[in-house]
Amino acid sequence: MTDTATTPRPSRHGDEPLLSVRDLSVTFRRQGEEPFTAVDGVSFDVRPGQTVGLVGESGCGKSVTSLAIMGLLPPRGNTVEGTASFEGTDLLRLPADEMRDRRGRDIAMIFQDPLSSLNPVVSVGLQVTEVLERHRGMSRKAAQPVARELLDRVGIPDPDRRLKDYPHQLSGGMRQRALIAMALACAPRLLIADEPTTALDVTIQAQILSLLKELVEDTGTALVMITHDLGVVAGLCDEVNVLYGGRIVERGTRHELFANPRHPYTNGLLASIPRLDGARGAPLTPIRGSVADNLPWDHACAFAPRCSQPVDVCTAQTPPLEESGVRALRCHNPVR
């Protein structure tokens, strides 16, 4: 793992994937309720130094996907199928203790709510040094200056003082930085960020996003960015997966996807959000209904009831995911 940092920055595409998710499905079963498939056959690759986005609305399965990969779903009441191979090891089949070890060392995750991800009764400094001790085998003494450096590098002012602070004494942006510092402490090769800026103000969001961007460029860490915000994706992700109803409905590089959205859902999303840079005055074109109107994927396209251009086959047949290179599309009647 040391060579990631010492070798020149890996080229972005064409490498072996670092993480390769295949046919990931997660089904929740609750007593007395219908089983609910939150993630339904999701496949994607992440290469070193690459930023892959998982975009969608609440309930699309994007967060469940990441939790399943990280082995963080509650052990009871759900079934996880498929594979998530991280350099040949299937993370989904890893015993819990090995997975726990991996989680700190190779794969790190940052969450939407930084406060609940930090231990409230341990100082921030100690939490960072603990990661260094555990995953990088440093002594506490050696770890301390490194922790200080890390806080400094993620843009926490006055790191000496902040090391002694407890999470509740930091602002939301500072907490998120502290979490990123902890994630960095183990020099992970894969970082999964689940809505890392959703709880933050826009100026703080800008700081965090530029920090993440810098991190990816400098260390070659692969980043999986989970968000509902198309703006965040447009600036950050090399490759974007649009999720709807637990399945990937469209994929492309960010330039392709935004310039030429082919799935009516992607297209509809882009048409429905007011834009700072667009013309003003014209009414927005919303997507009708809500996710509550979805059809089951079994014999239909889940999005059909909300689609702007459905055809008969949409409610009769599941559209397959047609892939060509990076681009992929799951639609019977795509735009253009």
Partner: peptide, 14 residues
């Protein structure tokens, strides 16, 4: 600062 910080869903603009 506020306006410059808002991400825009347009890679070119970003």
């Amino acid at each position: 600062a506020l306006l410059s910080a808002v991400p825009v869903p347009d890679p070119e603009a970003e």
